[in-house]
Simulated assay, not measured.
Amino acid sequence: MVSLHSRGLAQFEVLEPAGHYRDGDTHTDWSSEGPGLEAALERDTYPLPRTEDREGYYGGWHFSYWASGYRDARLLREACERLGVDLRGYLDLGCASGRVLRHLALDGDLSEVYGCDLNRRHVDWINRYLPAKAVAFQNHSIPSLPLPDNSLDAVSAYSVFTHIEAFETAWLMELRRVLKPGGIAWITLHSERTWAEMNDNWGLYKRLKHQPDFAPYVAHESRAELPEERMVFRWYADRSYSSKVFYHQDYVRRVWGRIMEIREEHHRLPKKQDVVILQKT
């Protein structure tokens, strides 16, 4: 229950580098990313994971999967610049198979690039196929990271706190511990706005409709407001954190803001999850 696929080494088949899939990928228009994307595409000659080895992200749209990681890495770098963070050491908590991590590992300005995940298959994939600068390790659901105090400039957690039904504040404290003073944590979450806006076109909503505790909220009018400050919908399965969690902004400001200073909040950046950026002072 505290980790996944911990026994033995996984066997993989891999895809070609991202450039191989660019033509014909009509999922998203990435032209607004500009010349930086072109330079990153030329630099990244490493393989891509198959859809089943990347939590299903972007289905069969392999170039869009890669480009979404580039975009999120760019947004993180820009946040560091705005908040005066010299990004040298970085951790992606819940990194999966390196969607964002690969782009930071190819950034010559960074000296330390770590990723961790509950799923040993993702860890094996990164350590086998991505640049040597990308160091991946398997963590577990109990808040503990094998990294020194005050050692990192930034930590990201993409779609991680959306699943943490327990130990959420302890995980925030652990992220605070490994961050340097002034370092930032980029965390995506489901907020009360997510609660009100999700609909049948959202995978999140399609899954929740089959959760018995969510039945009273299927009708849109039942979701005008988040009923509680923090709501957890749990699936009982043989894996850790099989849940969907919603947070009210007031809760985040009152509780998370005690642990680190909340510097920025963004609605649906870039897609369907909100972002909160915290800074260790």
Rank of each mutant, 00 (worst) to 15 (best):
R74E: 14
R74T: 13
R77Q: 12
C80M: 10
C80Y: 06
C80H: 05
C80A: 14
R82H: 06
L83A: 04
V85N: 02
V85S: 05
D86C: 07
L87D: 08
L87W: 03
R88D: 13
G89R: 03
L91R: 02
L91I: 02
L93Q: 00
G94A: 00
G94V: 01
A96R: 09
A96D: 07
G98H: 00
G98I: 00
G98Q: 01
R99G: 02
L101C: 00
L101H: 00
R102W: 12
R102Q: 14
A105D: 13
L106I: 12
L106N: 15
D107C: 09
G108C: 12
G108V: 12
G108F: 07
D109V: 01
D109W: 00
V113T: 00
Y114S: 03
D117R: 09
D117S: 14
L118C: 09
L118H: 05
L118V: 10
R120V: 08
R120P: 05
R121N: 15
V123D: 03
D124Y: 01
D124F: 01
W125M: 02
I126F: 03
Y129M: 04
P131H: 03
A132V: 07
A132D: 13
V135S: 08
V135C: 02
V135A: 06
N139G: 14
N139A: 15
H140G: 13
S141Y: 14
I142G: 08
I142F: 11
L145D: 00
P146M: 06
P146A: 09
P146T: 11
L147Y: 06
P148E: 14
P148M: 05
P148C: 05
N150G: 08
N150T: 13
S151N: 10
S151D: 06
L152H: 08
L152D: 13
D153N: 14
D153C: 08
A154Y: 07
V155A: 11
V155M: 10
S156E: 05
S156M: 04
A157K: 08
Y158N: 13
V160E: 03
T162V: 10
E165N: 12
F167A: 12
E168I: 06
T169I: 07
T169E: 14
T169M: 11
A170M: 14
L172G: 03
L172T: 10
L172E: 02
M173D: 10
M173C: 09
E174Q: 01
R177G: 07
R177M: 13
K180F: 01
P181N: 12
G182Q: 10
G182I: 14
I184V: 07
I184K: 05
A185F: 03
W186R: 11
W186K: 09
W186E: 08
I187K: 05
I187L: 15
I187T: 04
